[in-house]
Amino acid sequence: MSFKIAIASGKGGTGKTTVSVNLFEQFSEHSEGKIQLVDCDVEEPNDHIFFNRTKKISEEEVFQQVPTIDKDKCTFCRKCSEYCEFNAIVVIPPVRFAEVNQSLCHSCGACSVACEFDAITEHPESIGKVSFYKTGNNKGLVEGKLKIGSAMQTMLIKELKKRVPLNAEIVLYDSPPGTSCPVVETISNTDYVILVAEPTLFGLYDLKLMVNLVRELAIPFGIIINKSGLGSNDIYEYLYKESIDILGEIPFNKEYAGVYAKGQIVGNMPVEMKNVYKSITEKLHKMGC
């Protein structure tokens, strides 16, 4: 069984991807088994940019089932439209109009259940792609990329997670920002969640939302404070009061931010930072990782 770790934050730009990529590297250096990185930020997957010798091995299209309404069979009774939680079905009886708005459809299937006249059939529509990369020996990267215009982030993340090779020793899920469905899907069924936080007013506000979410889902979690030295000490007071573990602190370093912006963080880590990651992976190993 793989040990599954999700890296999430609530707030965007706190360093989820930096931490994910660096943990991936750190684990790979000290592990015999396979490490798998999964880019669940399907609206803007960018983990692959950090690996120079990345090779895409394969890709797979992911589909959702979308209904169409046969107007010859439809009686314009509106039952399907009433069943639809997402307002994706427009039925206008006086003008005999019945249509599905594909961009609003969530493929729940309720309309098919509702229709008593067999007027609804389903057909597959692409919602995006899952790509498989090899970044080195025993180092796999899988990413989901949502099709432009699709609102099916959560479904794509679910399908992405299903396609992650099962032979990995450790799986790292790089989560999208926020605290809504795509994040819930990313962190669900993981063994541990790392929350990357920054010690700013906004960072603390969003961290609290995220802590509430992870507690609700009852997943063990710890915090990595990124860009420490910035902002205030409020975050430390909060974490102390709530008895939340700090896994490590990564000091703010302008030079390193420049290296990140060039996409060159792999293999270019300052020694003091590397020691932080080393101690984080050791702590995670003690937790059964």
Binding site: N87, V90, L104
Partner: peptide, 9 residues
């Protein structure tokens, strides 16, 4: 979702 669609309908 779809408030505009429903209003147009």
């Amino acid at each position: 979702n779809g408030a505009g669609t429903k209003a147009a309908e």
